[in-house]
């Protein structure tokens, strides 16, 4: 019980740290209510003079927020759906089916996790530029802008995730073979076995992987920035808000930028607060972020 001898000191440290963590978020919210000439001027005031919602209206209008929101939702949904589907199917094959080349493919999946994402920005972009028969390209990928101008480009490099396959496989290994065998005896094909037995049994892991992928995809910035430069119509929320911050007078727009940020953070924040048990387990499992 020696660990509990100095509770007041522990409280002091933890509360101070928590305040330091939360204050920037509060500053963001407070600034989002500040009027023109109130933000970024001396002396600094934490609280706004009035809680005015006009910045939120301005964010929705100036930022074209509904369009940004739609693009973010589409890209995030496609990525999350695809990662869950491919990870579960591939994980099942690697965990429960026997076939030549299984170890080799499993090793390939493991090795994909060794390659850092920055290595792929250039070749992925150039591959999409030269995608055959898309965006004005001929069969050999020449002549047009390829897939870089399509909204699909936002999602394409993230559709399959080596870590996701690894995670699903590790959990599926522990499903008893007898259960799968019983279903096969009842005449179920492998796809039915996967869909009716394996998927329901791995629902918590799917939720964890889905949350991790959702948050990552929703917050993705660098790749989305690249694709949005090629085609501004597919701008996502982070890119659009940063665009406003970069190219319009920063002192005047800062409260509007903050309002946009508050709105863009909300969906992830709500999801995280509701399902944090699953998310935190995911971070523990990946040990990465």
């Amino acid at each position: 019980m020696i660990r509990r001898r100095f509770p007041w000191l522990s409280y002091l440290v933890v509360v101070t740290g928590a305040v330091l963590t939360v204050v920037p978020f509060l500053d963001m919210v407070m600034t989002s209510f500040k009027g023109a000439g109130e933000a970024g001027t001396l002396p600094y005031h934490f609280l706004p003079k009035a809680f005015d919602l006009s910045n939120y209206r301005a964010a929705i209008d100036q930022l074209d927020l509904p369009v940004l929101f739609r693009n973010s939702v589409v890209a995030t949904a496609v990525i999350t759906g695809s990662v869950l589907f491919t990870s579960s199917l591939a994980g099942y094959a690697l965990a429960k089916l026997r076939f030549p080349g299984r170890n080799l493919i499993f090793r390939l999946v493991l090795s994909t996790m060794m390659f850092p994402p920055f290595l792929f920005f250039i070749p992925h972009f150039l591959i999409l530029v030269h995608w055959p028969l898309a965006g004005g390209n001929d069969l050999f990928g020449r002549g047009g802008a390829g897939l870089t101008v399509s909204i699909a480009a936002l999602a394409m490099p993230f559709l399959v995730n080596g870590f996701g396959i690894f995670l699903m496989r590790q959990f599926m290994v522990s499903i008893p073979d007898e259960v799968l065998e019983a279903a096969r005896i009842d005449g179920a094909g492998e796809f039915a076995v996967w869909w009716r037995i394996v998927v329901p049994q791995t629902r918590p892991v799917l939720l964890t992987l889905g949350l991790l992928t959702f948050v990552q995809a929703w917050n993705e910035y660098i790749w989305a920035l690249l694709i949005s430069t090629a085609n501004p119509d597919v701008m996502t929320l982070p890119v659009g808000i940063q665009f406003l911050q970069d190219y319009v007078d920063p002192t005047r727009t800062m409260p509007i930028v903050m309002a946009g940020l508050v709105l863009s953070i909300l969906p992830v924040l709500i999801l995280f607060l509701l399902l944090q048990k699953y998310y935190i387990r995911g971070v523990m499992l990946s040990g990465l972020k």
């Binding site: 963590t21 939360v22 917050n219 910035y221 982070p238 808000i241 930028v257 940020l261 953070i265 998310y279």
Partner: peptide
């Protein structure tokens, strides 16, 4: 949960704030 907030936040928000 409190300490975790920055991790689920987009880098654009963290950076700009």
């Amino acid at each position: 949960t409190l300490y975790f907030l920055p991790i689920v936040t987009t880098v654009v928000a963290v950076g700009n704030v």
